[in-house]
Design a protein around this nucleic acid. Structure first.
Length: 216
DNA sequence: GACCAGGCACATC
DNA sequence: GATGTGCATGGT
C-alpha cells in the first residue's frame, strides 16, 4: 500500500472529482449548526430537518428562544428527530453552558482556542467527541477532522483501518497526514458522508461506488 | 415487521 | 480500556 498521505489524498481527490463541493454544513446559522449536530446523533438527517423546521415555525431557533422554552415543550417540538427526551435535555445542557460560561454569546464561545473549546464542550453532558468536533469545525471553522460512523465503515471496508479502531486513532490518521485546514476537513468529511449515504450503507452498492476502482 | 440512521452516557467486567 | 444497553422517530 502507498503511504497514508498519498492514500488519503487520492481518496479525497476522487470523491471531489465525482461529487463536487458539498457546501457544508446544511444550516442557516452557526447556532443552527450546533442544534443540528446534537439532533443528528445516531439519526438520519431527514428527521433532523423536520425537527429544525418545527423549531423555526415556533420561532425558537436562537439562544433566547430555546432558553425561554420549557424542556417539555422542546421535547415535543423535536420529536421527529427521535430520542426526543434525551436530546431535549442535551440541548438544554448546551444552552445552560452557553449562558453560564459565555453569557449566551455564541461568538465569544467560538473564538476560544481550539483545544480549550473542545475540552469545554466535552464537559457538557450529551456532547461527545464527534458532536464537539462538528461544532468546532463547522460552526467555529477551526481545523479538526470529524470522525463518524461512515468514516469508520468506509475506511475499514477498504482495510485502511481496523473495524474497532478508536475515535482518536482514526482522527490522528487523518490529521497527521493531511494539511491542517478547516476548508479541507470540512469538504472531506462532507464528501465521506455523501459517499456513505449513497454507496456505503449497510447494504453497500460497491459495483457503482466511485472509489471501488481507486488505486492507492 | 425487521432493519437502519452523520452518538452518547452509564453499568459492568 | 473494552463491551453491552437504553434512548425513539421515520424511511426502506
Amino acid at each position: 500500500m502507498m503511504d497514508a498521505k498519498k492514500m488519503l489524498r487520492a481518496f479525497y481527490d476522487r470523491l471531489f472529482e465525482f461529487f463536487g463541493p458539498q457546501k457544508w454544513w446544511p444550516a442557516r446559522s452557526r447556532f443552527e449548526i450546533i442544534l443540528g449536530a446534537i439532533l443528528t446523533q445516531n439519526t438520519s438527517w431527514k428527521n433532523v430537518e423536520k425537527a429544525i423546521k418545527n423549531l423555526r415555525s415556533a420561532g425558537v431557533l436562537d439562544y433566547r428562544g430555546l432558553k425561554e422554552l420549557s424542556q417539555r415543550r422542546l421535547a415535543s417540538l423535536i420529536k421527529p428527530a427521535g430520542y426526543y427526551n434525551i436530546k431535549a435535555e442535551r440541548l438544554k445542557n448546551f444552552i445552560n453552558f452557553l449562558s453560564l460560561e459565555y453569557q449566551g454569546n455564541l461568538t465569544k464561545m467560538l473564538k476560544e482556542k481550539t483545544l480549550v473549546l473542545r475540552q469545554s464542550l466535552l464537559k457538557v453532558k450529551g456532547i461527545g467527541k464527534e458532536t464537539a468536533d462538528s461544532i468546532i469545525l463547522y460552526a467555529a471553522g477551526k481545523p479538526v477532522m470529524v470522525i463518524d460512523a461512515y468514516t469508520k465503515r468506509i475506511f475499514s471496508r477498504h482495510r485502511l483501518i481496523s473495524p474497532d479502531s478508536s475515535y482518536d486513532h482514526v482522527q490522528e490518521l487523518f490529521m497527521d497526514n493531511l494539511p491542517k485546514s478547516p476548508i479541507f476537513y470540512n469538504e472531506f468529511h462532507a464528501l465521506i458522508v455523501r459517499l456513505g449515504k449513497e454507496y456505503c450503507v449497510k447494504k453497500p452498492r460497491c459495483d457503482a461506488c466511485p472509489i471501488a476502482a481507486l488505486k492507492y
